[in-house]
Design a protein around this nucleic acid. Structure first.
Lengths: 120, 120
DNA sequence: TCAATAGTTGAACAACTGTTCCAATGTTCA
DNA sequence: TGAACATTGGAACAGTTGTTCAACTATTGA
């Protein structure tokens, strides 16, 4: 059985179904935006190093500044980003403000990234 | 026993040890760079969507272009980035070039990111 | 209260990045 | 071979982003 039209489609019929199927399997816009924000946040070397340091223990801005060799202002700016994305939490102790990873999820995400980076 | 100097240190003695300990626990420069490159790659919405689509099945540039609603050139450019970071692999089939996730590590990393993004 | 320490904020600037456009390459089929 | 399709490559442009600098708030202790 031949189709009525003689123009051949630029693509096989199967692709349309494939496209629809894959499209439907994609996360919703909000989740997608949040995912890329999280990955993007850890994509900056300074923020990643902050997160890695906080994997060990809670630290204040001054300590992080010393550990990374970056100005306190720069650290504070990056912590703001991480805080807004709920990757870290803060608590004040006198003059100092101590930051920690928000939850175990962040820890596991970093662990997974580390594993991938170390292979090969 | 009191120290000879009367000037008080701007920080407690403990912090220096803390700084050294955390610094030593940090991954080496190369691993760190690779980690941030990987996270950064998934931090771009287009590249993340490409990776998510490839979580389902291998796809060619044309299909990805349709699925994401982005020009083929843009898709190709982003695939180049993902390929250079070894997050995806390609194989030619006739005119088409099919891309897939490089390995299970990438899949798990995306899974972990998705889980984190969906909570709360 | 004042001085010192700790942290935050906003503006500005340079550096980076993603998309577009167009040309070039590679592949198939007639 | 020539035409059409699929992908890649480079240049250029706009938009984003990370750091710096300086000013500002907050806390402690004298």
């Amino acid at each position: 059985m031949m189709p009525m039209t003689t123009e051949c489609a630029p693509h096989e019929q199967a692709d349309e179904a494939t496209i629809a199927r894959v499209q439907q399997s994609m996360p919703d816009t909000h989740t997608l935006a949040r995912m890329s924000e999280i990955f993007g946040a850890l994509g900056d070397p300074t923020r990643l190093r902050i997160a890695l340091a906080l994997c060990r223990q809670p630290l204040c801005v001054h300590d992080l500044s010393q550990i990374l060799g970056v100005s306190e202002s720069a650290v504070s700016h990056q912590l703001r980003t991480l805080r807004m994305l709920r990757l870290v939490t803060s608590r004040r102790a006198g003059k100092r403000v101590y930051y920690s990873l928000d939850d175990a999820h962040v820890y596991r995400l970093i662990e997974e990234g580390l594993k991938h980076a170390q292979e090969r």
